[in-house]
Amino acid sequence: MTFEEILEYSIDIIKLKNNYLLNRISELKDLCDSEEDSHISLESFKGMFLFIETIGNISKPSSLTVTESRFFYLE
């Protein structure tokens, strides 16, 4: 799956409508894309949404970042 397909799934299936999360995800992707040879982990991205789906929609996490290894980290 591509980044866009995973994001579309999260919006459609998980009903992710939270502006904070969508804006932060977009911001993090842009930051990663701007760095040469730096791609986010799609498995980590997908896993984050599976986690959100499991616990139910969250309003605003304490933190949403991308690690140096390009894994999404949701706190």
Rank of each mutant, 00 (worst) to 15 (best):
E5N: 08
E5G: 09
L7A: 12
E8L: 09
E8V: 15
S10D: 07
S10N: 13
D12H: 15
D12G: 08
I13W: 08
I14Q: 00
K15W: 10
K17D: 11
N19Q: 14
N19Y: 14
N19D: 12
Y20W: 10
L21R: 01
L22I: 13
N23M: 09
R24S: 04
I25G: 03
S26V: 07
E27M: 08
L28M: 07
K29M: 04
K29F: 14
D30I: 13
C32T: 08
C32N: 13
S34Q: 09
E35T: 10
S38V: 12
S38I: 05
H39G: 06
H39A: 04
I40G: 05
S41R: 01
S41T: 07
L42D: 04
L42Y: 04
L42H: 02
E43I: 10
E43G: 08
S44L: 06
K46T: 05
G47H: 05
G47N: 13
L50I: 10
L50M: 09
L50S: 10
L50Q: 12
I52L: 06
E53R: 13
E53D: 14
I55V: 15
G56P: 03
N57M: 05
N57T: 11
S59V: 13
S59P: 00
S59D: 15
K60A: 01
P61F: 01
S62A: 11
S63V: 09
L64W: 00
L64V: 05
T65G: 05
T65H: 07
T65F: 05
